[in-house]
Amino acid sequence: MGETITFWVLAVVSVAAALGLVFSRKAVYSALMLGVVMLSLAVLYAVQDAPFLAAVQIIVYTGAVMMLFLFVLMLVGVDSADSLVETIRGQRFWAIVAGLGFGLLLALAVGNVAFSPAAGMGRAVSGRDGNVPALAEEIFTRHVFAFEVTSALLITAALGAMVLAHRERVRPKATQRDLARTRFAGPQPSPLPGPGTYALHNAIDMPALLPDGTVAVTSINRVLARHEMEEGYAPTDPEKAALIKQVLEKDAARDAAPVEGDKPIQVKDALQDEGELRDEGEPQAGTTSRKENAPQEEDGK
């Protein structure tokens, strides 16, 4: 009876979580949903007399694999939501047809079979010190070769990950001297103005004001500005709002532009931010030209 209740609760939870994994727009939610499914399955394992697997499920899957997923999600960009527009014609329809058909087929096949009452794990572990020693005996006697091969597999995987993720440095690392020289050769040797300078508030989302009262473009915090624009918390001052919007549009246009392959040159990467600063610091003429350019670039897309 206890098992039945546990099963029904966890079955509903896990199916719901699996559906959530598939249909949530944000990848982080999907990851969390996956975690729920895995934990539910761990409990189901435990219920089915597999305590070792339940522990491993929690430790390896929920602990290690899920953490890896989240880690990579953060690396890749947590803020990018998937577009809901399907680009491949007929893909959504046929995917659902195939998925439902396949699930039904399996369910029907399983449902058609009349199983005898489960034999239970009692016989398997009889004469041994429970589930874990029994498994250990199996692994280290009959399946010792497969086990050793898995060790090789794991080492290979670790090495492979290192090789894949490694980036060769093709020029010497920029020294303090290089960085300083680049900085002083640039348009802004000084630090960027902090937010809120000369403003009425010194909150992080307030751009700094120049002595003549205009907004210092370089002090706008992009992440917050984007968040504000998306959630509708735009500054009440229309002039500031327009300026922020302008900056964001320019950023979007730059992101949309095709990326020319990998750029492994870290010095350049490091300097890119300052290059942007140089762009921002341009006189008004540059801004107007940017305005004119933006629609064209959208057309070009």
Binding site: I88, W94, A95, A98, G101
Partner: peptide
């Protein structure tokens, strides 16, 4: 790759 996966699923079914 998703088109390919679709045909694989059909094949499996």
């Amino acid at each position: 790759v998703r088109s390919y996966a679709l045909s694989i699923l059909f094949g499996a079914a």
